[in-house]
């Protein structure tokens, strides 16, 4: 139901597979009606439910949600990584080609040449037994770059991410780096193949605050320089606001709202976004105390018939509990709330 009455901003999407990268207006990443279901005994509701999302070239898009909202799962499907036993509906197009319909060779090509990913924990994404130089050059070598050239390129990349003594760094092992430094190495590796799209899944959550700023600064600078599109997945609305152009807010596997950053903060349209903003502690001297959202997020074992947020929503009416709202577009914004037009949040 929800995934068929999709939002208006996907209407520009090419009808079928006929269009290739030739068309300039083909978005870099276009997720449409993506629904992921686990086997029945594992979950009562889909992990993803009719997700629509797009990232244009050079654009930074935030995907914000709390734990269990499905934001990381959505991000991983772009690389064709689905949870075990999950069935997918909908499309995940990278430069016009559906990743979900690809064979192993196609996926390899996407992962190698088009899309790169940076994970939350740099320690877990680097082989601890291999030197940083090997880690950085393996992607290049696979693409047939000669060894000398690959090493030179790796040094260049390390310099770009602000690592002093890049030559020496190539010979060191991951455990000789701090978390922040290692995350820079991971970013360098991710950018080594000049990907058109960078997926960043909570890339700074495991880092200290001051390190976070540096790593985000590097990500942004490189992204501008290379014209890379970025999907930035995070639980931190403030962080997303600081670096993204547009933000999607997810709740219980659905996109509940999307807006350009400034509008989202000035005029959140979904009660969940508003509540999330109000619950975030603020540093400013005059800021109000964080307001809790009652209840807790919907677990996978629960499948409320109506709006998933209704049980925690201060504005919920009887209809909200029985009818699932569709994501409705309005210019650059989209919101999935039955009462969005009533001005309840003013």
């Amino acid at each position: 139901m929800f995934d068929k009455t999709t939002a208006g901003d996907t209407e520009a999407r090419p009808a079928t597979s006929g269009t290739d990268t030739a068309g300039r207006d083909v978005p870099l990443l276009d997720i449409a009606g993506l629904t992921l279901r686990l086997p029945d005994h594992a979950a009562a509701r889909p992990i993803l439910d009719g997700v629509d999302l797009r990232v244009d070239r050079g654009e930074t898009v935030g995907l914000v949600g709390e734990s269990g909202s499905g934001k990381s799962v959505a991000c991983r499907t772009v690389l064709g990584l689905l949870p075990k036993g999950a069935r997918a509906e909908g499309t995940v197009r990278v430069e016009g080609t559906d990743v979900l319909a690809m064979g192993a060779a196609g996926l390899r090509d996407v992962r190698r040449n088009k899309v790169a990913m940076v994970f939350q924990d740099p320690r877990a994404s680097v082989n601890p037994m291999r030197r940083v130089g090997d880690f950085l050059t393996e992607g290049l070598r696979v693409r047939g770059v000669p060894k000398e050239q690959a090493l030179a390129r790796a040094q260049e990349l390390l310099t770009e991410v602000g690592i002093r003594d890049p030559h020496g760094a190539l010979r060191r092992f991951p455990h000789q780096f701090s978390g922040g430094m290692l995350q820079r190495v991971v970013i360098a590796a991710a950018l080594s193949g000049d990907p058109a799209l960078l997926l960043a899944d909570e890339p700074t959550t495991a880092l200290d605050v001051t390190t976070q700023a540096e790593v985000v600064g590097i990500l942004r600078r490189l992204q501008h320089r290379h014209g890379t599109g970025m999907l930035f997945v995070t639980h931190d609305l403030e962080l997303a606001a600081a670096i993204c152009d547009r933000i999607y807010v997810m709740y219980a596997g659905r996109i509940v709202e999307s807006q350009p950053v400034a509008d989202l903060f000035a005029r959140p349209r979904h009660p969940y976004t508003a509540a999330l903003l109000a619950s975030t502690p603020r540093l400013e001297a005059d800021a109000a105390a964080p307001q809790p959202i009652p209840g807790r997020p919907v677990s996978l074992a629960e499948a409320p018939p109506g709006c998933a947020f209704a049980a925690r929503c201060a504005f919920a009416i009887e209809r909200c509990r029985s009818e699932a709202p569709a994501l409705v577009s309005d210019g650059p914004a989209a919101v999935a709330c039955l009462r969005a037009d009533e001005g309840i949040l003013q």
Partner: peptide
């Protein structure tokens, strides 16, 4: 001051934070 500046928010400038750090 660096810690305070590092908290993401309006007018956040990662480049300047990195410099101060």
């Amino acid at each position: 001051r660096l810690l305070i500046d590092s908290v993401p928010g309006v007018g956040w400038d990662p480049e300047r934070i990195a410099e101060n750090r």
